[in-house]
């Protein structure tokens, strides 16, 4: 099963490599990983998407917690949560296809954020599955580049991941 693990980690050099190293050393897979500082400059937040059965996920969270730099973590799959990913797609746009791309972007609540005589850049956020659907909907031959941030997530309700 797919799990999104959200981690608060000391904002120190080497902290990221400890997490990445743990995954490669123990043969866990990482589907995506995003890191950014938090409102507390001494902490970073890492969102990691991984797959595995319950036993593997249990080991992953235990091993992550064991890293001295990891302050706290939650497995978002354990509770109701919201997941978002940012995507930018550069698409070849001709006279004939411009209108179609615009309306597709509209349907997916995407925005066209850059226009050149031959290209569009569409920006879109949403759950990863929605972004996948958009990619599937447009003609693959017209895609020049796809940039995705990897998902981040937040749990719903009163609870939150903080110190």
């Amino acid at each position: 099963m797919r799990h999104i693990i959200s981690i608060l980690i000391e904002n120190e050099s080497g902290a990221l490599s400890r997490v990445a190293g743990l995954f490669s050393a123990r043969g866990y897979n990482i589907e995506s990983l995003t890191v950014a500082p938090t409102e507390d400059p001494s902490l970073s937040r890492m969102t990691l998407v991984t797959r595995g059965n319950d036993d593997i996920i249990e080991q992953i969270t235990k091993q992550l917690n064991k890293l001295i730099d990891v302050v706290k973590l939650i497995d978002l799959a354990d509770s109701v949560h919201i997941e978002r990913e940012l995507m930018m797609v550069k698409i070849r746009a001709t006279e004939q296809t411009r209108e179609e791309i615009r309306s597709l972007a509209d349907i997916f609540r995407g925005k066209i954020i850059d226009v050149t005589p031959t290209t569009y850049i569409v920006e879109m956020t949403g759950p990863s599955s929605k972004l996948d659907a958009f990619i599937a909907a447009i003609d693959g031959d017209t895609i020049i580049e796809v940039v995705r941030s990897g998902p981040t997530g937040i749990s719903r309700g009163e609870k939150g991941l903080h110190l």
Partner: peptide, 11 residues
């Protein structure tokens, strides 16, 4: 003392 040792190989 190490939670990661528990149920690692044997449940």
């Amino acid at each position: 003392v190490d939670p990661a040792s528990i149920s690692k190989t044997v449940k």
